[in-house]
C-alpha cells in the first residue's frame, strides 16, 4: 500500500473537517476520492501532501509518516492543485526548471528532468511560450508536467479537469492513462466528474468529514444504485421497476414475454451512487 490512513482527524476550532477516516491506496492504482464541496477532500489531500498537520490519527505515504517525515514524503509525491500555481510571466520551460531546482538536482540532472517532464506531458510545442499566454488545456498539461518533474511515485490530482472543455478533458485523461501505463505511477484523484472516477481501480466517497463508502466502481454501483426496468405492454400497461442489476431486470422482463411492446433497461451510474450516498445522508440528517 502506498497510502495508509488510520482514524485521521482534522479539526478547525469546533468544525470537524475530517472525522476519523481510514482507507488505503494500492501502489500503481488509480484511486478516486469523491465528495461534495466541503466534504473534507482538500483537507485530506492537504494532510497527505504535508501542507496541513492532522489533529490526530496517522497517515503514511510510501511507509513514511507525513507528520514526522515530511521532507522525505515530499520527494515521493507530485501535486496538481485546483488552481494554477505556476508563474504567468515565465515560460513553461523556465517554470519547470525553477521547480526542478527545488529537488536538489545538479544543473545537468535538472535539464534532463525538465525535458523528460515536457516529453511525458506532451507539451514540447509550447515549452518556450509564457505560461500566462497558454489556453486552459495547455496550462493544465503544464501543471501536470510540473508535478512530474521529479518523477514522483504518487501523483495527487485535485480536480484536475474542472473548467476544461470535453475534448481537452478527454485528451488529458488519455495522457494520464499513458503516463500510468508507462511509469506505473499511483494516481490519487479528486473530481466532480463521475465518468472520470468510473475508470478508477478504487473509490472512496467522503461526506461531512466521514467515509460513506469505499470499493471498486462496480462494487459501489451494485451496493448503492439500481437499474431501472421500463416496459410498455401491448395492452397499454406501463411498468417501471427498480432492479438490483441488469440480469435481474432481464429475468423480471421474462414475466411479460409475448406482450412487450417496448422495453428499456437504464443502468445505474456512479452519479446515482454519489447522489444516493450524499443526498441520502442529507435527508437522514
Amino acid at each position: 500500500m502506498i497510502i495508509q490512513v488510520e482514524n485521521l482527524r482534522k479539526n478547525y476550532a469546533d468544525v470537524k473537517a475530517v472525522n476519523g477516516i481510514s482507507f488505503s491506496v494500492k501502489e500503481g492504482s488509480l484511486f478516486s476520492f469523491l465528495g461534495t464541496n466541503g466534504a473534507g477532500k482538500s483537507t485530506t489531500i492537504g494532510i497527505l501532501t504535508t501542507l496541513l498537520a492532522q489533529t490526530s490519527g496517522s497517515a503514511k505515504v510510501g511507509g513514511l509518516d507525513v507528520a514526522r517525515q515530511g521532507e522525505k514524503v515530499r520527494e515521493l509525491i507530485g501535486v496538481v492543485f485546483q488552481t494554477a500555481v505556476l508563474d504567468e510571466l515565465l515560460t513553461v520551460r523556465e517554470n519547470l526548471d525553477i521547480r526542478a531546482g527545488l529537488y536538489g538536482f545538479s544543473a545537468r540532472k535538472r535539464k534532463e528532468a525538465v525535458e523528460n517532464a515536457i516529453k511525458l506531458a506532451g507539451i514540447s510545442e509550447f515549452a518556450n511560450r509564457r505560461y500566462g499566454k497558454l489556453s486552459g488545456g495547455m496550462r493544465r498539461r503544464t501543471d501536470i508536467a510540473r508535478a512530474l518533474v521529479h518523477t514522483p511515485k504518487l501523483l495527487f490530482l485535485d480536480e484536475p479537469t474542472t473548467g476544461l472543455d470535453p475534448k481537452t478533458r478527454q485528451d488529458m485523461w488519455q495522457m494520464l492513462r499513458d503516463l500510468q501505463r508507462d511509469t506505473g505511477m499511483t494516481v490519487f484523484l479528486t473530481t466532480h466528474y463521475m465518468e472520470e472516477a468510473a475508470e478508477s481501480d478504487d473509490i472512496v466517497v467522503i461526506h461531512r468529514g466521514e467515509i460513506r463508502a469505499q470499493g471498486t466502481p462496480l462494487c459501489l454501483k451494485q451496493r448503492y444504485c439500481h437499474d431501472l426496468l421500463k416496459i410498455t405492454t401491448t395492452d397499454g400497461e406501463y411498468i417501471e421497476k427498480k432492479m438490483p442489476s441488469t440480469v435481474d431486470a432481464l429475468v423480471a422482463a421474462e414475466a411479460y414475454k409475448g406482450r412487450i411492446e417496448n422495453i428499456e433497461i437504464i443502468n445505474g451510474t456512479l452519479d446515482d451512487v454519489f447522489l444516493n450516498l450524499t443526498e441520502g445522508y442529507e435527508n437522514a440528517d
Binding site: L51, V79, A84, V85, D87, L102
Partner: peptide, 13 residues
C-alpha cells in the same frame, strides 16, 4: 495564496 503551496510540497525545507 498561490505558489507557496507548490514550493511547500517540494523537499526544500
Amino acid at each position: 495564496k498561490r505558489a507557496s503551496m507548490d514550493f511547500m510540497t517540494s523537499p526544500t525545507s
